[in-house]
Simulated assay, not measured.
Amino acid sequence: MPIYEFECSGCGHRFDRLQKLSDPDPSVCPACDVAEVKRRVSAPSFRLAGGGWYETDFKKDGDKKRNLAGDSEAAKPSTPAPSTTSTSSDT
């Protein structure tokens, strides 16, 4: 459930509330009991930074850990391996 921030335009009191998306917003300020509460737009308290955080952090121990977002080798075209058969000539 998301945490929403609210502010009373009457007294300026700010408060947070954990509620579902479908729950109605509070209409009365808990500090002054005035019906002037509005939802504030605020930044989240965490940030998922970096490329490939899911790939590198949540893999099992047996899986190959790699960063797909920053993997420069994935962008390179693959070249065929050199042939292992040798053609030597006896002279």
Rank of each mutant, 00 (worst) to 15 (best):
D61V: 04
R66Y: 11
D57M: 06
S88P: 04
K64W: 00
R17A: 09
K59P: 01
R66T: 07
S78A: 04
D23P: 00
A49F: 06
A69L: 04
W53V: 13
S45C: 02
D57G: 11
P26M: 03
R47V: 04
G52Q: 02
T84L: 08
P80K: 08
L48K: 15
I3F: 02
D71F: 00
S22F: 05
L21C: 00
K20N: 09
E5V: 15
W53G: 10
T79M: 11
S27E: 15
D90Y: 02
Y4N: 10
R40S: 13
P26R: 01
D63W: 08
F6V: 04
N67T: 05
E36C: 14
S27T: 11
W53Q: 13
G50W: 01
T87G: 05
A35I: 07
A43P: 05
A49C: 02
N67P: 03
V34T: 15
T79H: 14
P26T: 02
G50T: 11
S78I: 12
T84Q: 08
F46A: 03
K20Q: 12
R66K: 05
V28F: 03
K59Y: 06
K64P: 00
R39A: 11
A81N: 06
G51R: 01
T84H: 06
S86Y: 01
F15L: 09
P82L: 05
A43E: 11
S86A: 03
C32S: 01
E55H: 02
V37S: 07
